[in-house]
């Protein structure tokens, strides 16, 4: 796990996943991280169905015009303190979708991103590491 994390985690971490126009590749890897092979639930990391319950926002995709305001709304609905993790190359830099008439990304332009996970798609291990690092941030903020 990430450096700086206290030995006994202070709280369970709930994540909300938002797809802003990605290809699904990152999204299935997020689900794969939750399933038996990687099983993050044993650390108390859980995927929740509403942003109002979440500590961490996992965002994938290069943000299409249609999704811009919705992504902002999700971010505003999350309670403080919160962390944002941008997963996948297309959300971070645009990647193969680097130019378009219908994209407003990368995610940096719209939300303050705490963690960038590179990969197309990143492996589940990389996603878990990013979530653990976000944990450090949240624990530091609370302390």
């Amino acid at each position: 796990m990430a450096k700086g994390l206290t030995k006994s985690f202070k709280k369970a971490l709930w994540v909300y996943h938002c797809n802003s126009g990605s290809c699904n590749g990152c999204d299935i890897e997020i689900i794969a991280a939750l399933c038996p092979r990687y099983d993050v639930e044993r650390f108390g990391i859980r995927l929740v169905g509403s942003p109002r319950h979440a500590d961490v926002l996992l965002i994938t995709g290069p943000v299409t015009r249609q999704m811009e305001d919705k992504v902002k709304r999700i971010y505003e609905q999350m309670p403080d303190p919160k962390a944002v993790i941008c997963i996948g190359n297309c959300g971070n830099t645009g990647d193969v979708f680097y130019e378009s008439y219908n994209l407003v990304g990368p995610v940096d332009n719209i939300l303050p991103v705490d963690m960038h996970v590179i990969g197309c798609p990143p492996r589940p291990e990389a996603i878990i590491l990013a979530v653990a690092k976000a944990w450090v941030k949240l624990e530091t903020l609370e302390a």
Binding site: N19, G21, Q66, F97, S100
Partner: peptide, 11 residues
């Protein structure tokens, strides 16, 4: 539809 319209065909 179209929330993930990325303009791939145009690209």
């Amino acid at each position: 539809l179209g929330h993930v319209h990325r303009g791939i065909e145009w690209a």
